[in-house]
């Protein structure tokens, strides 16, 4: 049974959020956007916790084939759902059961379990931490570099334009927003020529260009050229990141 999309995307302008909007744009699926204001902790409000008990973006709702609502969180799981349900022609995925399908999942998990969390920690210690901890900055910047090195070598050795099978898939889309903001984590993309070329190749895709500006314009590249503005933005973010951390710590002591 084919399914008519009825998707609402709950998101904000972050590397994880644009994974889903880019996937939707690449597949030309109509969707509604509901923007969450992380600086006001909207993602911790009861109505949203009903959708995602983990209180994180992105999340989606859709009407499933049984006529009922399906609520999904975890960007990787959402992307797998979208291609399984709406990418019957395998535009940005591979046919289930094929070698390429499993390899695509392998790199998708590499992003979700490796690049995302580690680069996220580099962001924390580089931009948001309440005190400067040189060890933390180095640990996570180095781990992000190591992971970038794994992709860079893979692209070089496989002589492929994309991560798997010479086709842009959800594994590539999952990485793009993070690689595009490498500088925010203090990592210099110029150290990884193959990865940099891949980043540009991805950016040239109309689906990536359209999806990256959801729900707000994607301005990381401009921001990374402006040191003063970067520091100003980090200072603003630091306030609500630390407030959120305190809130979580308080709750966890209950």
């Amino acid at each position: 049974m084919s399914q008519q999309p009825d998707i609402t995307l709950y998101t904000t302008q972050t590397p994880n959020g644009i994974k889903v909007s880019i996937t939707l744009e690449e597949l030309s699926i109509p969707y509604k956007v509901q923007k969450l204001d992380i600086s006001k902790n909207t993602q911790k409000e009861p109505w949203f916790l009903e959708i995602n008990p983990n209180g994180r973006i992105p999340a989606i709702t859709d009407t499933f084939t049984d006529g009922k609502t399906i609520r999904l969180f975890e960007s990787g799981s959402i992307m797998q759902y979208l291609v399984a349900t709406y990418d019957k022609d395998h535009k940005i995925s591979f046919e289930p059961g094929t070698r390429e399908f499993y390899e695509m999942n392998n790199w998708l998990f590499f992003q979700n379990a490796g690049v995302g969390p580690m680069q996220g920690q580099a962001n924390h210690f580089t931009r948001y931490a309440p005190e400067h901890i040189e060890y933390g900055v180095n640990r996570y910047q180095n781990e992000t570099r190591r992971l970038y090195g794994v992709i860079d070598k893979h692209l070089k050795d496989s002589k492929s334009e994309y991560l798997v099978g010479n086709k842009c898939t959800i594994a590539d889309i999952a990485h793009w927003g993070w690689v595009a903001s490498a500088g925010w984590a203090g990592v210099d993309i110029d150290e990884f020529p193959e990865l940099k070329a891949w980043e540009d190749r991805m950016a040239a895709r109309p689906g990536v260009e359209k999806g990256r500006h959801v729900p707000d314009p994607h301005k990381i590249k401009e921001l990374l050229k402006d040191k003063a503005k970067m520091e100003q933005q980090a200072a603003e973010a630091r306030k609500w990141v630390q407030a959120g951390m305190k809130d979580d710590a308080k709750k966890s002591q209950k």
């Binding site: 499933f64 999904l72 969180f73 975890e74 399984a84 979700n112 379990a113 490796g114």
Partner: peptide, 25 residues
């Protein structure tokens, strides 16, 4: 059932991205 399967995958992703890396740190 496909719906149940996607929900199961959602928690698998939560484990690999939310539990594993942070417990490891």
């Amino acid at each position: 059932d496909i719906k149940q399967r996607h929900l199961t995958n959602q928690y698998l992703f939560f484990q690999v991205s939310g539990q594993g890396p942070y417990f490891g740190q």
